[in-house]
Design a binder for these strands. Structure first.
Lengths: 221, 221
DNA sequence: CTAAAATAATCGTTCGTTCGTTTATTGAAC
DNA sequence: GTTCAATAAACGAACGAACGATTATTTTAG
């Protein structure tokens, strides 16, 4: 990682102090950079294969073939298979969490924030089918528990929990467990998304407005 | 399957006609019966292992070991791995479907039938954790599509669809897509069940009554 | 030149499945 | 009641293929 070089005169900035030296032994970095496109290619290939053939039939060699890299290259970026799945999940979960919390402010009335959040969720899921299918599959598998990602999973809903807490404080929402409220915000939307992909129930404006109204009817105080 | 025997005199019933013969070659069955306990043991072992290690790490040899049979014995009862998963799914799905439709009559008011159905669902899931976890995992995997069980999956909800159709006819429920109504009946309950198992949100009477009320508020006309 | 990225070749292991043999159960014959 | 022949259940061993991971080597960028 570190290469030794001789005889340079250098100026080093240490905070506000500048140090000039001559004929100093200088150590500096000259490592080859990782190609972040490859990490992304591996992630993308894994997502596509997982949604096509599932955890039962996926393998490192198939992922490598699909990503156009050598299977051993994967081990440059990840410790092992489990580590790759873990990092992929954290990556996708983070995007999903950001997606659902977009354009939300504390100054919005709770009812408007609720509507915005459901629109965010549907937008994100419909335009990121791979992420959605992966999250459904991963969250339903025992892997999420075995990799110790149970708490991470809950963290995904942080934007929803914030909204819920405020809604309860402002007496707009029922004063009940967060998990019960979540059951009527997040999960119906995921079901709606699945219908959109599999049953052809179009996620059109009319249906989306209905989902928003039904969810609100369920959770409002 | 068929054993040949000589010199019997037999009487054969063909509809109403009786045919007597002497010194006829007679073929009849004397095969060893399959031990249905073994089929059940294989199913049970598969369920437990799937919910413990998932589709990624399960194997026929592990299943066999866990079920106390030889791995080759599994192939007496099932054509191959896929066939076993298919039959296991159909088996569990059928039980789930029966469970959710218990004690429902067409003479009940829709609101009461709705309550009964949610109670059925929670009862079934809470007392059949293995079935619940398996159905969640299987339904979220691409296997259900690849095995051509997409239509079978919808059939599971037949009791709910019947209730929904009647509710719409009687103007008790919103006149919207079945899938939207399903999103606020079935899926919140599954979410509730998962909270029960993982988050310790007890599926007590208070919470259950709340889920029933919230679901009804969402779907009522 | 160096060092890490990237790879091809290969490791021992496990996979799903099949094979050949043994075991258990059957109704008929004795 | 005991044997008998017959057949499928049941099994242990073994198959080639593929697995996840490692090693040795080459390529590439600074």
């Amino acid at each position: 990682m570190i290469t030794r070089r001789w005889g340079c005169s250098v100026r080093i900035a240490l905070g506000n102090t500048l140090i000039d030296t001559e004929r100093t032994i200088v150590y500096f970095n000259c490592m080859r950079q990782k190609d972040e496109n490859k990490r992304e290619a591996i992630f993308t290939a894994t997502l596509q294969l997982l949604n096509e053939i599932g955890f039962a039939d996926i393998s490192m060699s198939k992922i490598a073939r699909h990503a156009n890299v050598s299977s051993s290259t994967i081990y440059v970026y990840f410790e092992n298979k489990e580590d790759m799945f873990r990092k992929l999940y954290l990556n996708v979960k983070e995007k999903m969490s950001r997606g659902m919390g977009a354009n939300l402010t504390l100054s919005m009335p709770v009812v408007d924030a609720h509507e915005q959040m459901i629109r965010n969720l549907v937008d994100f899921v419909v335009s990121n089918k791979d992420y959605f299918l992966f999250l459904e599959q991963f969250s339903s598998s025992p892997m999420i528990v075995r990799l110790g990602l149970g708490e991470e999973a809950k963290q995904m809903f942080h934007p929803i929990y914030e909204l819920i807490e405020r809604g309860k404080r402002e007496k707009q929402l029922k004063p009940i467990d967060n998990s019960l409220l979540l059951s009527f915000i997040y999960y119906p939307v995921m079901s709606f998304a699945r219908s959109h992909f599999y049953d052809g129930t179009k996620a059109n404006d009319e249906n989306l407005n209905m989902v928003i109204r039904m969810s609100w009817d369920a959770i409002k105080a």
